[in-house]
Simulated scan of single mutants.
Amino acid sequence: MKPSAQKIYLASKSPRRRELLRQIGIEFELLMLRDQTPRGPEVSEAVLPNEQAEDYVARVTLEKALFAKQTMEWRKLPLRPILAADTTVVLDGRILGKPADEAEAIAMMQSLSGRTHQVLTHVVVLHGDKTYRTTQRSDVAFAALPDALIRNYCATAEPYDKAGGYGIQGQAALFIMDIAGSYSGIMGLPLYETGQLLKQAGLQIL
């Protein structure tokens, strides 16, 4: 068992990020941001006008980490490193968010069919007055998908809580011909890069 000083706060609701942190033996407590408050989400994921994908994913991740740090201080929680991450899917420079409905999910899958797109995951670790951060990029090649297959997939629950309408660890793995980059990064937390940031923040990894 690691001492409490070796624990971190995870500012994310993603069960995939929890799974990945457990995979590398990182102990964490959740410090999640709320999507619904009287004033709206605590951190908006709306894209700013003319905002590039790399700038967008970095900005949103840092805002999540900083809000979690404020929460830690407001609640007088034990001071620990805070990890936040955000993942976005990009096709031809266009950010593909989480589909709102079946029609949008179908349109996303049709646009990805037979194409190579990018998955960007930005990771931020805050510890004391230090900020450690990086962006990991992967290229993902989809096979050409028949419309019937797309519609069958979009009739499941899988596309609707994931950027780009798919998760590499789910049924959409059937669509992926090739990846260049980080499998865990496509899932939502690139483990090599995350481990390096946590080491820089003073955590013992293995």
Rank of each mutant, 00 (worst) to 15 (best):
G170N: 02
S138M: 11
A155H: 08
V140Y: 00
L174V: 12
S138C: 09
Y166Q: 03
G164H: 05
Y160D: 05
A148L: 13
E158S: 06
G165D: 01
T131N: 00
V125K: 11
L149V: 13
D147A: 14
A155P: 04
F175P: 05
A141Q: 07
P146E: 10
D161A: 06
L174N: 11
D147E: 15
Q136C: 15
L174P: 00
H122E: 13
G170V: 02
L149A: 11
A172L: 07
A144R: 06
D147F: 07
L126E: 12
A144M: 12
V125M: 15
Q171C: 12
F175M: 09
G170L: 03
T131L: 14
V140K: 02
G165W: 02
L149G: 08
Q171I: 12
D139P: 00
D129R: 08
V125D: 13
P159R: 03
H122D: 14
L149W: 07
V124S: 10
A173E: 11
D139H: 08
L174H: 03
K130T: 05
Q136G: 02
A148V: 11
Y160F: 14
V140M: 07
S138Q: 07
A172W: 00
A157H: 04
H122T: 14
I168V: 10
Q169L: 09
G167I: 01
L126Y: 10
T134D: 13
D147N: 08
A143D: 10
G128E: 15
N152G: 09
F175Y: 06
F142H: 00
V124A: 14
F142P: 00
S138Y: 05
A144N: 05
T156R: 01
D147M: 15
D161L: 04
R151C: 08
Y132K: 06
A163L: 09
G167Y: 01
P159H: 02
S138G: 08
A172T: 00
I176W: 04
L145D: 02
L126V: 13
L126Q: 13
A144V: 15
L149M: 12
